[in-house]
């Protein structure tokens, strides 16, 4: 079916829905008839911790881990997380940043400062071929009515670059939320808004 080959990093803060986004990408790959691996780390990454999920899609996927300079796409669900995992992005990859800021305890305690103008610093430090997209996924999600759909807004933004038909995405969303059918319309809307904002 598809001939998609992509290494996607989902980086965020515990509770932002990166795990569900990873699962959804897995369903998408399955729909395309492709191989896929989604790697998560559970345990210590409880609420408030830095959380990373790797998704690899292709004809045949071996290692579930994405290494420095090999990610095609990074979805940073939070500004500082885009910096933390920046080295994973390959030269010429796409970094999609949610402009949301979640201050960690050392920042809240005034021990360290939250870096300013992150998207700008990222653009300066990036190679010419690298694309950086930033959007207000949190605000978009709140307009829809809940911060819980931030993850789907982010996937909407990513969908501009993967070259997968919009309808297959929507089918994957319906499948991922089949157990909670009431949330499907909101998630579809989040996807569409994210697709618009990340274009």
């Amino acid at each position: 079916m598809g001939n998609l080959e992509a290494s996607i990093v989902l980086a965020g803060v515990g509770g932002q829905g990166t795990l569900i986004a990873g699962k959804l990408l897995g369903i998408l790959a399955l729909k395309l008839g492709l191989d896929v691996k989604v790697s998560e780390v559970h345990g210590m990454s409880q609420r408030g911790g830095s959380v990373i999920t790797y998704v690899k899609i292709g004809e045949e996927v071996h290692s579930p881990i994405i290494e420095d300079g090999t990610a095609d796409y990074i979805l940073a669900f939070e500004q500082v997380e885009s910096v933390r995992w920046a080295s994973l992005l390959k030269d010429g990859g796409v970094m999609i940043i949610n402009n949301q800021q979640i201050e960690s305890l050392p920042v809240l305690m005034g021990q360290v400062e939250y870096p300013k103008n992150i998207a700008e610093s990222m653009r300066k430090a990036a190679s010419k071929e690298t694309k950086i997209v930033d959007l207000d996924a949190f605000d978009i999600a709140m307009e829809i009515g809940t911060s819980k759909v931030v993850n789907i807004v982010m996937l909407g933004a990513l969908s501009n670059y993967l070259g997968v038909d919009e309808n297959i995405w929507k089918e994957a969303i319906e499948e991922a939320f089949a157990a909670k059918p009431k949330t499907i319309p909101g998630n579809i809307k989040a996807f569409e808004k994210g697709r618009e904002a990340g274009a």
């Binding site: 290494e67 420095d68 300079g69 090999t70 920046a86 080295s87 994973l88 992005l89 390959k90 030269d91 010429g92 990859g93 970094m95 990222m122 430090a125 990036a126 190679s127 071929e129 690298t130």
Partner: peptide, 8 residues
């Protein structure tokens, strides 16, 4: 080693 997108 693969080249990264950023000068970290």
């Amino acid at each position: 080693i693969p080249k990264s997108a950023f000068d970290v």
